[in-house]
Design a protein around this nucleic acid. Structure first.
Lengths: 160, 160
DNA sequence: TGTGAAAACCTACTACA
DNA sequence: TGTAGTAGGTTTTCACA
């Protein structure tokens, strides 16, 4: 809930550089942003402490590990006492990669990935078995055009 | 379109380790998976070559950089000649973080992030100005429960 | 916040099973 | 694919501006 109060242009450039390749050496990044290695190190450390950088990660191609099927599942709850418990239960399902509570006709929107269409059926059975889940509607993804883009925010530089 | 034919359990454990912290040293990962540093290096190199690992990246907390508003925008095209050109145009908008072509009532589903609700209005104007876009429906995210989980696939180990 | 310098550590390669 | 060895690069921590 904190804004980018203490993120200057240099921080933004470091984030841009490391978003594209987080294993780049700080020496290399330092040369690009015009700072010493130690200074880049210090800034990264502070961004980790402040939670701006959540973690260093890597992007795996879902197709190459056999996850050929993607769907968005909208979930409606029944308005009963179990509503608060639905999200934790959905977190237990590894196929649910992403979960948002949303406004509108449905209460949650989940991104689900499985090896094939048949796998979604299994996941839907599990979701429907969660107490408080009233109904679901699935939207099948035909093709993912792009995903997990490096973030851009007011004040951040476009990726080179 | 290639499956996980050549991904064994050791590869999976290396991916799990580096998903949680991609700047961990290969020496450290090697100790964890019970291999030499050089062997881990070789395996990572091959996974990069095969495209299993797309890139080393980092996860920035959207809230901490001022992106307080998220919505999913469903987009319908008009069935005309411009339909093929819509995705590239959407890619030009930095607020569109993710784009999927989908089956059903709408043709695309986009994840959009802006600093505040007002920002979505601007993005919607830009989307509606794209030739071939017939209409949009937005679903406002109230809270992101979780996102960008490390992938799990049949044969991969659960994160420790 | 920044810098340069230095010790500890890691990477990335080669030779070889 | 794997291991060990190693030269050269990188990280991380200083004292200090």
């Amino acid at each position: 809930m904190q804004a980018n109060i203490q993120l200057d242009d240099t921080d933004a450039r470091i984030l841009t550089a490391l978003s594209a390749d987080s294993r780049r050496s700080y020496a290399d990044v330092a040369a690009e942003v015009g700072l010493s290695t130690a200074a880049v190190h210090e800034r990264v450390k502070k961004m980790l402490e402040r939670g701006v950088i959540e973690r260093f990660s890597l992007r795996v191609d879902p197709e190459r590990v056999g996850l050929h099927f993607t769907a968005f599942v909208a979930i409606r709850n029944d308005g009963g006492a179990h509503c608060r418990d639905i999200a934790p239960r959905l977190r237990e399902l590894p196929e649910v990669l992403e979960l948002h509570s949303v406004a509108g006709e449905y209460d949650f929107l989940a991104k689900v990935r499985t090896t094939h269409a048949r796998g979604l059926e299994d996941v839907l059975y599990q979701i429907k078995a969660i107490p408080g889940v009233a109904r679901t509607t699935s939207t099948v993804v035909l093709n993912t055009e792009f995903e997990e883009r490096p973030l851009r925010w007011p004040g951040s530089a476009p990726a080179a």
